[in-house]
């Protein structure tokens, strides 16, 4: 029983960065933009938070940090960093109508470069004398749990033992889901992603929706990076440790068929698959790697299945990947 609870809790912690990433990407894709820069954006979100928190910790000393600034500074830095990434992407693809795949991939190159550069050079640039970027104090602030969680037993642990960002991820996914399906903004946004010419004719400002969806989506995805360093990695930044999580988030978008509420459960599943090898006895290290393959294989199967089945609601937004240009005479 305890093992199961432990497994589930750890799976959920693994799941949260993916959930942030895929919620952000779903929002972006719903506007018709396939943002392959998501891995880079999540990475930048993480490092931006780290930069903010590092500078704060160094300026007042790790033992003196206050709760509010310790959380708000990295949070704002993270949002700002990922917003900038979103702006670069939307300026290039919406205003300049650049190819989305190329722009996205370049953004990922840039973003991982940005993250690794500052991850490797932050100490030198800031002129501090510390051996590594270890933000344990800030991480502790981020990981503050509900005070009564410990007293609730295993079931309590399963539901109440996470940091606030984890709950935020689920709430954001649910809110995004509701906005997409239950509000006029969502209706307009989906129309933009499906058929921008129709949306344009109906008086919807297509570019504004595309910018908003991409930038807000980027900010949501960036939070995934922040959660990863502050919570999962306990405030320790090491270059490239983020791994393939960004691409897993893109896979999750397909797996959840562009529905953020499905992505919540999907992310738990992916998170579980990510760590399940630790819970299978007598498993070789090599086989673990094959198990890590399953999320991608499952995603491919979902992709094939939906395209063979051809149910219109399960298809990618119809104008995904195409830029919109209103022909004028």
């Amino acid at each position: 029983m305890n093992t199961v609870i432990a497994f589930l809790t750890r799976a959920i912690v693994q799941a949260i960065p993916l959930l942030f990433g895929s919620t952000g990407e779903i929002l972006t894709e719903k506007s018709g933009h396939l943002n392959l820069g998501i891995p880079g954006i999540m990475y930048v979100g993480g490092i931006s938070g780290v930069i903010g928190s590092f500078l704060y910790e160094q300026s007042v000393g790790p033992e003196n940090i206050q709760y509010l600034p310790a959380v708000l500074i990295p949070l704002c830095c993270c949002l700002l960093g990922s917003l900038c990434m979103g702006l670069i992407y939307s300026f290039l693809t919406v205003t300049l109508r650049a190819n989305q795949n190329v722009t996205g991939l370049a953004l990922t190159t840039f973003g991982t470069g940005f993250g690794n550069f500052f991850g490797g050079s932050l100490i030198k640039i800031s002129g501090n004398d510390v051996p590594s970027i270890t933000l344990t104090a800030t991480s502790n602030m981020f990981c503050k749990k509900l005070p009564f969680a410990a007293s609730l037993g295993p079931v309590g642990r399963l539901f109440f033992s996470y940091s606030f960002l984890a709950y935020a991820a689920v709430v954001i996914a649910l809110v995004t889901s509701w906005i997409l399906t239950g509000t006029r903004i969502g209706l307009n946004l989906r129309a933009v992603g499906e058929n921008p010419a129709t949306a344009d004719a109906a008086g919807i400002n297509v570019s504004r929706y595309k910018y908003a969806a991409t930038c807000i989506g980027s900010m949501i995805a960036g939070l995934g990076g922040l959660f990863y360093v502050m919570d999962y990695a306990a405030g320790v930044w090491s270059n490239n440790a983020f791994g393939d999580r960004g691409w897993l988030a893109v896979a999750l978008v397909i797996f959840s068929i562009w529905r953020p509420n499905v992505a919540i459960l999907g992310s738990f599943l992916f998170g579980g698959l990510f760590i399940v090898h630790n819970y299978i006895p007598n498993l070789g290290v090599a086989t673990q790697e094959l198990i890590k393959m399953t999320p991608y294989v499952v995603t491919i199967i979902v992709l094939i299945f939906t395209s063979v089945r051809k149910r219109r609601e399960d298809q990618p937004p119809a104008s995904l990947g195409l830029s919109y240009f209103r022909e004028e005479r």
């Binding site: 370049a106 953004l107 190159t109 973003g111 940005f114 550069f117 050079s121």
Partner: peptide
């Protein structure tokens, strides 16, 4: 500095 500077510059040029 960290050699990831290369990717930043590549990104900018692209």
């Amino acid at each position: 500095f960290n050699d990831a500077l290369a990717e930043i510059i590549t990104g900018i040029i692209i």
